[in-house]
């Protein structure tokens, strides 16, 4: 009797599962979650094979350490003037990326660590100096406390480089593999000599879920 009841209820359950037309389309009412701070040096739950925060932090760490150990850049009696912006840093990879995210991180960390061993030129803000000089010339503002308007600084070295990638896609396996390199160099703008070079690289692979293959 008990066995009969057990079998009957199991059959009913199976029948219910098998005939529920909405089993796969039922509305997903799962709760969301509040935002949380995550460590920028670690990978997150949502990942891809593109550039992620831990890569940017890793790039900045490695480049800053290496640049500060270079005597041409950080060992001169007269600190060199350097320009670190993204104008000559080319994205040759398959990923759209905000290059300033990488370059700004690099500039800020280098600036803090250099502690006067380099002079950083903000060429990207050239319009600010001109606009301020124009206001002073028009009598709208006074001369300030740092002296008369001066010509902006010509730089000695400028950051150049590129990010490149080689991608492989396995259409059967759904696996995507990316080898990505970031090349950074400091260019003597007078002679075009490359006085410092370094690179950062990674290789990431991921396999999309079978329903997307």
């Amino acid at each position: 009797m008990n066995k009969f009841l057990l079998l009957s209820s199991s059959a009913l359950l199976l029948s219910a599962c098998a005939t529920d037309p909405n089993a796969a389309t039922r509305v997903n009412n799962s709760a969301g979650r509040a935002s949380v701070y995550e460590d920028v040096r670690s990978s997150s739950a949502i990942q891809g094979i593109g550039v992620e925060s831990q890569d940017i932090v890793g790039i900045a760490d490695k480049m800053v350490r290496d640049m500060l150990s270079n005597p041409i850049l950080a060992g001169r009696a007269t600190p060199p003037r350097v320009l670190i912006d993204s104008e000559y840093f080319k994205n040759m990879s398959s990923s759209r990326v905000d290059k300033d995210l990488i370059i700004n991180k690099l500039r800020v960390q280098l600036s803090r660590a250099a502690n006067g061993r380099m002079i950083f030129v903000g060429r990207q803000y050239a319009g600010v100096a001109e606009a301020e000089a124009d206001l002073q010339h028009a009598g709208v503002v006074d001369g300030g406390t740092t002296g008369a308007p001066a010509p902006t600084l010509r730089v000695d070295y400028r950051l150049v480089g590129s990010m490149n990638s080689q991608d492989t896609v396995g259409s059967r396996s759904g696996e995507t593999l990316r080898y990505q390199t970031f090349t950074f160099e400091m260019l003597d703008v007078r002679t075009l000599e490359l006085v410092w070079s370094n690179e950062y690289e990674y290789k990431k692979s991921a396999q999309d879920d079978l329903i997307y293959r």
């Binding site: 997903n28 949502i46 990942q47 891809g48 094979i49 593109g50 995507t176 991921a206 396999q207 999309d208 879920d209 329903i211 997307y212």
Partner: peptide, 8 residues
Amino acid sequence: SAIYANND
């Protein structure tokens, strides 16, 4: 670009 792995 998101990789969907181990989801519902």
